[in-house]
Design a protein around this nucleic acid. Sequence first.
DNA 1: AAACCCGGCAACCGCTCATGA
DNA 2: TTCATGAGCGGTTGCCGGGTT
Length: 225
Amino acid sequence: MRKPCCDKEGTNKGAWSKQEDQMLIDYIQAHGAGRWCSLPKAAGLHRCGKSCRLRWINYLRPNIKRGNFGQDEEELIIKLHALLGNRWSLIAGRLPGRTDNEVKNYWNSNIRRKLIKMGIDPNNHKLHQSFPLQHASSHVSVSTTTAQSCGVPFIKSHGSTNHRISDTHSSLVQETSHLNLDLTIAFPSPTHALLQDKSNKPISHGTNSRNIHQDSAPAGFLLFL
DNA sequence: AAACCCGGCAACCGCTCATGA
DNA sequence: TTCATGAGCGGTTGCCGGGTT
């Protein structure tokens, strides 16, 4: 069993104070981010390194976008989730200024509920069997219309018996192609950019392929590999 | 006014992967 | 090749504030 990266004894937990925030900001501005396990001691913080990292990435980092998600952001999240599943960091990477934690929370607290309300299983983006057919009767696809009161992609009926939104992910891929979703080559999120700068090397496939090759990756997405 | 409920969100935890010695 | 360490990710927890009873 590996030892924990931080000495749990004597470390603060819970909400960050303004003073702690400022200490972390000051340290990172002076020395840069990274070396998270040794950073708290160097910065004079009684915090776990992981906690410092999370605080920086999710709240203190420059260019963080806070507040409500826009309609376009919401639709993009839904589409990306249909393609990627719960790959929050990848999804967040497509939303400038948004963090994986924020996207994840927004999904769980808002979008997920909306989809369920519409009779859509948020896990696989398929309609529940019991959902009334007048809502979606046939070949179903995802549209980006913003006119929907629910704020989620509209379900268009094309008149046969298929009730599934993402029955074939290739159709979804077609639908999303205009979004310039280059999901496998570029990683524009600040985190990835930072990594790339740090190592001055291309990002290896390791971390990302880990995400991509998991079972829940939709078949349509695998076509990109 | 008080108690309770519920949703949102910040933070923690455990796991996996990458990397270097 | 193996092991130790750093880093990142996703699931889960717990607190807090607002709404309801």
